[in-house]
Amino acid sequence: MLAFLIRRLLQAVPTVLAVVLVVFVLFSVVPGSIMSSMDGDGRGATDAQVMERMRKQLGLDDPIYVRFGAYISKLAMGDLGTSFRTREPVTSMLAKRMWPTLQLIFAAMTFAILIGVPLGFIAALRPGSLADTLSMVVAVSGLSMAKFWLGLLLMYLFALKLGWLPSFGYGDGGLKYLLLPAVTLGVSPMALLARTTRAAVLEIMTADFVRTARSKGMSETRVVKWHVMRNALVIILTAIGLQFGALMGQAVVVEKLFSWPGIGSLLVDSVLQRDIPTVQGSIFVVVLFFLAINMAIDLLYGVIDPRIRYS
């Protein structure tokens, strides 16, 4: 287990380095910088001398490999640089934003798992029934709805019409504020999980060992509980892992929509302001999160499927 963990951690290093390199190069070659945005994009809003001094100060005149070298050596010490905008260390900005994003993502995933997996099971156990059709209608609509639109609908209904929940903002960070953004974010992974679960269970129900279980004289409920569930879990877990990654990206839209003070909205704002260190830092954190989730899923595989543990 420990050897596996160490191997996985070492494997993650090149991935992280590659991502850092790509992000760094990409934001160095795209047109526009903090300078041009301060300059009113060429309308000469700022004094030329001030601009020159700032450029020196931020190190924007150095060749790209010098800047990358400096970035990497600072990164190795856990320093993600200083925001161009706020002059705050990027790490402390991210630290403030991390918790709301994690809250949002885990709440959305919890919603997706609690609704999606049972829905998929119900559909698979009675294929072709009304329950199957209904749950798949829910799943397909959940997949097809744009998040910003669904979010607006929920806001309209629960905040404006019914007045049960606040329409946006983080407030005290309580469940009341979390609910709408989490559901908005959770609907599409919920739909995907429902479909994946249904497909997985349907496939496992035709397996030989299910026939063996039936030949033992088990009720269908027991067959599912004792033999189908754990096997389906292996497949469902893969889907959950993939969805976590996707959620990190989708959170950007939802955070923006609900003015949720997370990494996603920080990322969008920083891109608009060409605050390159903050953009790089945010993406770095997202990538780390993604890798951590993948690793956790890999470890969980080993717990569920003995074939992975030993081979």
Binding site: F209, T212, A213, H227, R230, N231, V234, I304, P306
Partner: peptide
């Protein structure tokens, strides 16, 4: 098929 007739995760 004794390969597939037993539950692989039990």
């Amino acid at each position: 098929e004794p390969m597939t007739a037993l539950n692989p995760v039990s």
